[in-house]
Simulated scan of single mutants.
Amino acid sequence: MKGFVAATLGFILSFHAALAAEPVFPPASRIGIVPPEDMMPSKRFSGFENQERAAAISFVEMPAEAYGQLVSGLTKEALKRQGMSVTFRENLKLGSKTGVLVAGTVVGPEAGRKWVLALKDGDLTALLIAQVQGGSDGYSDAQMRSALKSVALRGPVSLDEQVSALPFRVNDKAGFRPVRVLSGSSVLFTEGPLDTIKAMEQPIVILAASLSPPPPSGERRDQFAQAALNSNQILKNVTFERSESFRFKGQEWHEIVAKATDAVSGQPMVVMQTIRFEPDRYVRMVGLARIDQREQLLPRFRNVIDGVDMRP
C-alpha cells in the first residue's frame, strides 16, 4: 500500500509539474513561454512582467522574411550602439525553430541585464526581449534563458481577438478599419481596399499605448511630442503648423499638425499627432493623409483618439 501511495503521489506531482511547464500565451499572442516564477501576463504590452522585480519579457511578431534582417542587427557592434554590451551569444535549434539568443548588460536610464531572442518558424519571426533593471537581484541569467528557450509558437490569431486584447478600447473608429496589431500595444487602421500601404494610396491611423511613464508636464512634453514625430522613418521635410498642449476630459493632451513628404513616394502629406497623457502611461495617435484629403480626414483622426479608453 505504501508503495502504491508513493507511486500515486509521484504521479500527481509529476502531472502538476507537467502542467506548470506548459507555455502560456498572452491574450491574442502567437508567442508563448513558460514564464519565470511570479511573472504575470502584462496589461501594458504583449508579454510578461514582474514590476516588483523590475523585470519583463516582451514579444514582437513579424513576418518570416524579417528574420534575416533582424539577426543581422544582433551583432556586438550594432547592439553596442543601442547601449547593450553583449556577453553571450548562442545559435539555437528548438525543434523546427531556428534562432539566435544574445545576452548582455545595458547602461543608461534603464541599466541592468538584457536578453534578446530572435526565432523563425514557418510564416512567423518572433522577437523576445527580456530585461531586468538594476543589479544582480530580480531573476538570474539561468531563469531568463530557460524562459526564453521554452518559447512556443502557435497559428494565426484573428484580428478581432488581437484588437480586443489591446490595452485600450477604440470606441469610435470613425469609418476606418483595423488591418494590423503590433506588439500587443498598437494598431494600424486605414480606409480603402488595401491592407498594405506603400505610397500613401490610402490614409493611415496608428494608435499606440506607451510602455513607460510619460515625461513631466510642461515644456518637456512639448519637446517629447515633437521628438516623437521627428523620429519616424516614413516622413521627411516635416514642418509644424501648430504644436500645442491643452486639457480635455480632465487630462493633459498634446497635438501637432504638420506638413511633410512621404519618404517613399515623395507625395506631400498632412500629419496629425495627438498624445493623451495619464499619470503612469499615455496613448499616441498618428494620422497620415494626402494633402487633398486634409479637410475631411483631420476631424476623423481626432474622433478616433477622442474615443479611446484605456483599460484598467
Rank of each mutant, 00 (worst) to 15 (best):
G287F: 10
F224I: 01
N91T: 15
V238Q: 04
T125Y: 03
F25P: 05
M62Q: 12
S164W: 03
S140W: 12
M84G: 05
M39L: 14
P63Q: 03
I305F: 00
R145L: 01
R154W: 03
I234C: 07
G99I: 03
A225G: 02
M40E: 12
A165D: 04
P215H: 08
A66N: 08
E22V: 14
F4I: 13
P26T: 04
N303P: 02
G32C: 07
V304Q: 09
L188A: 11
E65A: 14
M144W: 03
L79K: 10
G184A: 08
S210G: 10
S29V: 11
F189T: 07
I206Q: 14
A289T: 12
R44H: 12
I12E: 00
G47R: 05
K259C: 00
V170S: 01
F189G: 06
R300K: 15
Y282C: 06
V157R: 04
V304R: 10
S140D: 09
G135Y: 05
G135Q: 12
S185R: 15
M144F: 07
L194H: 04
I31N: 00
L119Q: 08
S46Y: 03
F277C: 01
L13A: 15
F4P: 00
K198V: 14
R221K: 06
D222P: 01
N230Q: 13
L229Q: 03
A20T: 05
R180V: 10
F25N: 10
R81S: 14
P41C: 10
E65S: 13
F59L: 07
M200I: 11
G122N: 09
L9Y: 00
L94R: 05
E61D: 06
S164G: 00
G135D: 13
L229S: 00
P36A: 13
G122Y: 09
G68P: 08
F248R: 04
Q51S: 13
S265N: 07
D141W: 06
R284P: 00
K2P: 01
I197S: 02
V34S: 10
S72T: 09
R145I: 08
A228V: 11
S210C: 06
P41Q: 07
E295K: 14
V132R: 11
M1V: 12
L74D: 05
S245R: 02
R81G: 15
E191K: 15
F189Y: 15
P213G: 05
Q233N: 13
K93M: 03
M39H: 06
E255V: 07
I256Y: 00
K93W: 04
S96I: 09
E252D: 11
E52A: 11
G287R: 07
A7T: 11
A78K: 13
G112R: 01
W115Q: 06
I234Y: 11
V102R: 06
P299I: 11
A64S: 14
S210H: 05
T98D: 11
K97A: 15
L153S: 10
M84V: 15
Q267P: 06
D306S: 08
A130I: 06
A147Q: 02
K236C: 04
L79A: 07
Q51H: 00
L159H: 02
R145N: 10
V102W: 01
Q296T: 15
S217Y: 00
L288W: 04
G307H: 01
M84P: 09
D309I: 03
I256G: 01
V132G: 04
T8H: 00
G112N: 02
G250H: 03
I305M: 06
G250R: 08
P299S: 12
F48L: 08
Q226H: 02
A118P: 02
R113M: 00
L19P: 02
D306Y: 09
D262C: 10
